[in-house]
């Protein structure tokens, strides 16, 4: 893929970074940021999500890990209103998402995996579009878009069509779209996939700052190491169920998260591959 602008790795270290976006101020409440009650989804014969319940406390940095096909994306889609659950509930700060979708969705910033963006817009247009869809006024959108582009080091690519972005830049612009309305809960499906290490570290700082300001973040990822360093809570999901959930220290139980994960999920093999493949 062509990369019309230099990757951020080669850019000089950003001078005083713009303020990390803070979630909109709100009256404190005792509802968890997200509560999933017995969510289920089946596709034909395959049960993708099986009676899954999960509670994400306010102010937590929550990691969701699991093998491919574990049902992470399906779960997050149902939690954020992109997919009708067969059964179950998703409460966002106490608002039942499937009963009051517009109210609940206004609280969520969503970066979903496996869907496209309106990529014939420029990066700046795309973030503006998302801001306007959330009902922000024009001046406010313009200000926030400028801040976000600066924060994510996308200023030089602001006027480029998103379709011409590299995979990592696309993730970053999608993150900007999720942040523009200052949500109280960020739901990020595979936010670090194909993001270069420097950008990943920047994104991590942004998310950490966001949590320190009272926001809640849920990320799904395959990268155990990242989750262990970044998150304070983690849930291990396999076959559409939560195998274990809690604080990272509880879950890893003295071992590393990766080893615990392999123990829980199983399926590790030590084969060297078929004989014909070893010859080449």
């Amino acid at each position: 893929m062509s990369d019309p602008t230099p990757p951020s790795a080669s850019a000089p270290a950003p001078a005083p970074a713009p303020a990390v976006p803070a979630p909109a101020a709100h009256a404190p409440s005792d509802h968890p940021a997200m509560q999933l009650n017995r969510l289920s989804k089946r596709f034909g014969d395959k049960v993708a999500v099986d009676d899954l319940s999960l509670t994400v406390p306010v102010g937590s940095f929550y990691g969701m890990v699991g093998p491919n096909g574990a049902g992470k994306t399906t779960t997050l889609s149902m939690a954020t209103g992109l997919l009708h659950p067969d059964a179950g509930q998703s409460l966002i700060h106490g608002v039942d998402l499937w009963a009051e979708p517009l109210k609940a969705k206004a609280l969520i910033g969503n970066l979903s995996d496996g869907v496209k963006l309106f990529d014939r817009l420029t990066g700046e247009q795309l973030v503006t579009y998302n801001g306007l869809l959330f009902g922000l006024d024009r001046d406010e959108v313009a200000e926030r878009v400028a801040d976000l582009l600066k924060l994510l080091d996308l200023e030089s690519a602001a006027g480029t069509l998103v379709v011409d972005y590299s995979a990592g830049m696309t993730k970053k612009i999608a993150l900007a779209c999720a942040l523009v309305h200052a949500p109280r809960l960020l739901v990020l499906d595979e936010p670090f996939e194909s993001v270069d290490p420097v950008s990943a570290a920047n994104i991590r700082d942004i998310l950490t700052g966001y949590v320190q300001n009272g926001g809640t973040v849920i990320v799904s990822s395959h990268v155990m190491d990242l989750v262990q360093r970044m998150c304070d809570h983690v849930a291990v999901v396999a076959n559409g169920r939560v195998l274990v959930a809690g604080t990272v220290d509880e879950v890893r139980d003295g071992s590393t998260l990766e080893d615990r994960f392999v123990d829980l999920v199983g399926g590790r093999t030590h084969a060297e591959g078929p004989e014909w493949l070893r010859r080449s």
Partner: peptide, 20 residues
């Protein structure tokens, strides 16, 4: 790739049509 670029701050029609 069309490599089409516009200057930053140019949001085209988004700046013209109502901000709803």
């Amino acid at each position: 790739s069309s490599a089409k670029r516009v200057a930053k701050g140019k949001t085209g029609l988004f700046g013209i049509l109502p901000a709803t």
